[in-house]
């Protein structure tokens, strides 16, 4: 397998009145052809911004200021807007968090899907509508031909998210980026959407990047998981390794604080004390050190680099001075 997407040393700054504040601080990530990568982190860790920067969709006053992101041989960060626009919707599909606001409320869903096809691949309108119906069927919408004529408000939240996925798939992308696509949905619908994306990925062999704050949600979906904290990757490993042998103290804390159905009722959950640092206020050393129970003097002095864990899976990398050596055990 070769890397379809390779991000190196990506930095993103927010321009504030008081000067730039760093939100993404040197992220290294790779996604292989046909692989599904889960990016996990809490709000403000930079997980969404990292992916938005790839397709030139960063909000105003937020800018990628360094690093590179090679996608199929070209550096996305160096591409002009026009080339990025062509890439969006054809090679790279995007599914956003909130299906309520990401669809145009005054346009029929069929037209919204067809529009992407007409503009990207120069399809004629009848052919595009035909393909839109196929896409709706693909994402599991019953009687797709009738639904082409529906307005977004006539569909339920789960159905709207399926429409969003159909739009994301319209250009047969090689990479599908899903930015917390189930957060706004009910639990039983969440499970349906996760299953749908997994099936589509298996069927078309595309790569998937799934951004979420919920580790458990993507346990069944991702091949590999990258854990982000305060704008850096703290651990990156195959999914079984993350769940069986979590190595970074933050990953361990996240897993421990997840309520599960096997815990005893009425017991205290282990929790991570404190809160993540705000952008522009990160500590000089390891960003997690102030909340870390294992922190040593070295952690406050220097930032640990993401490095392979000796004795563990060859793809298992962690950024921690203290626990990197014990990754093979546990």
């Amino acid at each position: 397998m070769s890397a379809l997407l390779e991000i190196r040393g990506l930095t993103i700054d927010i321009e504030r009145d008081t000067g730039p504040a760093r939100v993404v601080d040197g992220i290294d990530l790779a996604v292989e052809e046909g692989e599904s990568l889960g990016i996990v982190g809490e709000s403000g860790c930079g997980k969404s911004l990292t992916m938005l920067s790839l397709v030139g969709l960063l909000p105003n006053r937020i800018r990628a200021t360094g690093g590179s992101a090679r996608f199929a041989g070209q550096d996305l960060l160096a591409l002009p807007q026009e080339a990025l626009r062509k890439l969006r919707g054809s090679q790279i599909g995007f599914i956003f968090q909130d299906p309520m606001t990401s669809l145009n409320p005054v346009m029929r869903v069929g037209e919204q899907i067809a529009e992407a096809l007409i503009h990207q691949s120069g399809m004629a309108k009848p052919a595009a509508m035909e393909r839109a119906a196929e896409l709706l069927e693909l994402v599991g919408i019953p009687s797709p031909r009738d639904r082409l004529m529906a307005y977004p408000h006539e569909l339920s939240g789960g159905m709207r998210q399926r429409v969003m996925i159909a739009i994301g798939l319209a250009g047969s992308p090689r990479l599908l980026i899903a930015d917390e696509p189930t957060t706004a949905l009910d639990v039983t619908i969440q499970a349906q959407i996760v299953d749908l994306v997994r099936d589509l990925k298996d069927r078309f062999g595309m790569s998937v990047v799934w951004i979420t704050h919920d580790l458990a949600l993507i346990a069944g979906l991702a091949d590999r998981i990258a854990v982000l904290y305060a704008g850096t990757v703290v651990e990156d490993a195959p999914v079984e390794v993350i769940f069986d042998r979590p190595t970074h103290p933050y990953t361990r804390g996240l897993l421990a604080s997840l309520p599960t159905l096997t815990d005893r009722p009425m017991t205290r959950l282990p929790s991570i004390g404190g809160t993540p640092p705000e952008p522009g206020r990160r500590p000089p050393g390891c960003p997690f050190a102030p909340r870390c129970t294992l922190a040593e003097a070295a952690c406050d002095a220097a930032v640990p680099k993401l490095a392979a864990v000796p004795g563990s899976d060859p793809r298992h990398r962690v950024a921690c001075f203290v626990t990197a050596g014990e990754g093979g055990r546990a």
Binding site: A191, A216, V239, E240
Partner: peptide
Amino acid sequence: SAVPSTDP
């Protein structure tokens, strides 16, 4: 059954 399991 819809609760995500932490066992991949």
